[in-house]
């Protein structure tokens, strides 16, 4: 499937994507004479569960559909970034979103981090003890948290709390024609709705992750000291010796990527919601499931990429 075919886009409607309505793509579409690869626009609410109808009418190649979905999701988020950078606006909106997304998620992130660090210590110390290497408890806890558990668990918690809220809110706006109304009143929903959420997530998630790491290490330290009577300074020294600058860099790059994914997927699902309240439920489920899966899958590849980029000995 070549690039041109993919960009004969899935959009039936005037999508928010300017590239799609260029006469060029229109012509290609008309020339190829088919209506095959078209879905509805991200911002146009429909009265029908169009995709069902669509799938029934045209047996579209599933793989192609998946590729299109990925392309559109990615485009949506990049467009949001480009537009807000080119003509910055909606500072108040960005602050509101940071408050809702970042500050609002603080408590669940801290709880998750604390107990993850705690349980990690609880489960590993006996094993380390059997090898006589309990002096490295701190290092083990810190590395696990900073490299993997902190970023991934924070991203999953934010998916559950924020991704679902974004897609439900945008979905409800789509089905009640508020997105259409916004466009009719001359506002670009990508700039107004997607961009502030994206920026808020890109700022908040790395900060939340760092906090989760710190609290997690604290949780581990408390368990080590109180339940396993380890020496407090041994633990802390082990932590300090264990993590390198590279680990910290990797631990911050990951949440930035995760934040991008969560926001792109949730906004895309929300804006393409169709079919009334049932549709809102469906798109919210899809947003959470897709975001969570994408976080975990991309974590693997990010880990590998970071090992290569940062020259971590393997």
């Amino acid at each position: 499937m070549d690039k041109v075919e993919l960009s004969i886009s899935p959009f039936k409607c005037a999508s928010i994507n300017p590239s799609i309505n260029t006469s060029n793509t229109r012509k290609q579409r008309e020339r190829s004479g088919n209506n095959k690869y078209r879905l509805t626009s991200p911002a146009v609410s429909a009265h029908h569960a169009f995709s069902i109808h669509f799938a029934r009418t045209y047996r579209m190649n599933t793989l192609l559909q998946v590729l299109l979905e990925i392309q559109e999701t990615f485009l949506l988020a990049t467009r949001a970034l480009v537009r807000i950078i080119r003509r910055p606006a909606y500072f108040a909106e960005i602050l509101t979103q940071i408050d809702r997304i970042g500050v609002g998620s603080l408590s669940i992130i801290l709880l998750t981090g604390f107990f993850t660090g705690g349980v990690l210590t609880l489960q590993t110390v006996p094993t380390l003890k059997s090898f006589g290497t309990q002096s490295v408890t701190g290092q083990l806890i810190a590395l696990s948290l900073v490299r993997e558990l902190g970023p991934v668990l924070s991203a999953l918690m934010v998916t559950a709390r924020v991704g679902s809220a974004i897609s439900a809110e945008l979905g409800a706006m789509s089905v009640s024609q508020q997105i259409d109304a916004m466009r009719a009143l001359g506002t670009d929903p990508i700039r107004k709705l997607v961009a502030p959420r994206l920026i808020a997530l890109l700022i908040s998630l790395p900060l939340l992750t760092v906090l989760a790491d710190i609290i997690g290490i604290m949780g581990g330290w408390i368990v080590a000291v109180s339940l396993f009577q380890q020496d407090s300074s041994t633990f802390l020294n082990s932590v300090r010796n264990g993590i390198t600058g590279d680990d910290v860099i990797g631990g911050v790059i990951k949440p930035i990527v995760f934040g991008f994914l969560i926001c792109a997927i949730s906004c895309r699902q929300g804006l393409t919601t169709e079919g009334g309240t049932v549709g809102v439920g469906l798109s919210t489920t899809r947003a959470v499931v897709l975001s969570a899966i994408m976080v975990i899958i991309s974590d693997f590849f990010l880990a590998k990429a970071l090992q290569v980029v940062l020259n971590v000995p393997t």
Binding site: N21, Q177, Q178, D188
Partner: peptide, 23 residues
């Protein structure tokens, strides 16, 4: 394009079927 449409939309007022007020 969507951007070009924005200036056209300033000339048009639309009353939606269900109001479509921003909740």
């Amino acid at each position: 394009t969507e951007e070009q449409m924005m200036s056209v939309r300033h000339k048009i007022g639309m009353i939606f079927q269900e109001g479509a007020l921003f909740d």
